[in-house]
C-alpha cells in the first residue's frame, strides 16, 4: 500500500488556539458578564432574512438553502421566495408592530432597486438594515475571485447606503464566505458582521482593515433550517425558541450577566398564513415570560462593546 501523501500526516496549524488568525479561542464561561439595560437577562434580537433569489442563480458550487432546486425555469422556487417579499414580510411587520417590537432586516441589496416600496415600508417600520450581499445568487465562497468579491460588496453597500444612509452590519448570504470576506467587508466600512455561528455572545474578529464585531446569528435554530430544510413542524421551532430562552435565562442569572436570544425568521417561511399565528403566540410567550430587552443588533453590540475590559 502506498498510502496518502506525507502531508496528510503533517499538521502545520496544530498549536494553541485556532488554526487560523481571525480570533483567539474563548470559552464562553470565561467571558466577562455583560449586563443589559434595566438588568434584563435576555437581549432579544429578531433577525429577518429578506433575500432575493434570482431564477437564474448559479447552482454551483452549491445551492443556497431556498435556492432553485428544481429544473430551470423554477417558478416553483422563485415565486415562493418572492412571496416572502410581497406578503410574508408584511405579516411579520404586523405582528411585530402590534407588540411594539422591531427587527433587523438582513437584506439582499438588489431589493433596493427591485422593490423601492418595500424599502420605504422597512424604513417606516423602523427596522435596522443589515447588508446581506447583492442577492442569493451572489454567494461569497472560496472560489470567487477577489476583485469580483470586492465589487459585489461595493455594489451592495452602494445600493443600501444610497437608500438608507448609514449601513454598518453585514451578513454573507447563506452564511458562506471566502477566506478574505471579513477583510473586504471591513474595507467597505462595515463594522460588524453576522454569519459565523461559533458563539452565543459577540466577539471581535481581526481583519486587514481593523476589527469586525461578530454578532451571533444561529442557523441550527432558525425557521429556514428547521422548517424548510429539516421539515419540522412550526411548533417544533417555537418550542425550541422557548427552550433556548429558558436555558439562556438561567445561564444569564447564574453568571450575573446577560445572554442574547436571536429569533431568526424568514418571510417566505414564517410569513405563511398557517404559521403566522404560531409566530405571534411565540412573541406573546416570550413577552409574558419577561426579562427581555428588545435591542436591535447595533444597540446590543454597543452595550457589549461598552462593557469590554480595556
Amino acid at each position: 500500500m502506498t498510502g496518502l501523501p506525507e502531508e496528510y500526516l503533517r499538521y502545520p496549524r496544530r498549536r494553541r488556539g485556532m488554526d487560523h488568525d481571525r480570533y483567539p479561542f474563548r470559552a464562553l464561561p470565561t467571558a466577562p458578564p455583560v449586563r443589559w439595560p434595566g438588568g434584563a437577562p435576555i437581549a432579544l434580537w429578531i433577525a429577518v432574512h429578506v433575500g432575493h433569489f434570482p431564477m437564474d442563480m448559479p447552482l454551483k458550487p452549491f445551492v443556497a438553502p431556498g435556492g432553485m432546486e428544481r429544473p430551470y425555469p423554477s417558478f416553483w422556487d422563485y415565486t415562493q421566495r418572492d412571496y416572502g417579499n410581497r406578503i410574508g414580510i408584511y405579516r411579520l411587520m404586523r405582528v411585530l408592530a402590534q407588540r411594539g417590537l422591531s427587527a433587523s432586516a438582513l437584506l439582499s441589496a438588489r431589493l433596493a432597486e427591485r422593490y423601492p416600496v418595500l424599502m420605504e415600508d422597512i424604513a417606516a417600520a423602523g427596522w435596522e438594515v443589515v447588508c446581506a450581499g447583492l442577492d442569493m445568487g451572489h454567494l461569497h465562497h472560496g472560489e470567487v475571485p477577489e476583485e469580483a468579491e470586492r465589487a459585489w460588496i461595493a455594489e451592495a453597500a452602494r445600493l443600501l447606503r444610497g437608500r438608507f444612509g448609514t449601513v454598518r452590519g453585514w451578513h454573507s448570504p447563506a452564511h458562506s464566505e471566502s477566506h478574505r470576506t471579513p477583510d473586504l467587508v471591513a474595507e467597505a466600512g462595515f463594522t460588524w458582521s453576522c454569519g459565523w455561528v461559533n458563539d452565543d455572545m459577540p466577539y471581535v474578529m481581526a481583519t486587514a482593515h481593523g476589527p469586525l464585531l461578530i454578532m451571533p446569528l444561529p442557523q441550527d435554530l432558525s425557521d429556514q433550517r428547521m422548517l424548510f430544510q429539516q421539515h419540522m413542524a412550526t411548533e417544533d421551532f417555537t418550542a425550541a425558541i422557548l427552550a433556548a430562552y429558558r436555558l439562556l435565562r438561567v445561564e444569564a442569572e447564574a453568571t450575573g450577566g446577560g445572554r442574547i436570544l436571536p429569533v431568526v425568521v424568514t418571510p417566505w417561511v414564517m410569513g405563511q398564513p398557517h404559521r403566522i399565528p404560531a409566530f405571534a403566540a411565540l412573541l406573546d410567550s416570550l413577552l409574558a415570560e419577561g426579562g427581555i430587552w428588545p435591542g436591535p443588533a447595533e444597540a446590543i453590540l454597543a452595550e457589549w462593546q461598552r462593557q469590554q475590559p480595556g
Binding site: P61, H175, H179, T181, W196
Partner: peptide
C-alpha cells in the same frame, strides 16, 4: 462547501 466552509466550521 468550498473551503472555507464558514457555516460548518464555525458551527
Amino acid at each position: 462547501r468550498p473551503v472555507p466552509d464558514v457555516l460548518n466550521y464555525s458551527w
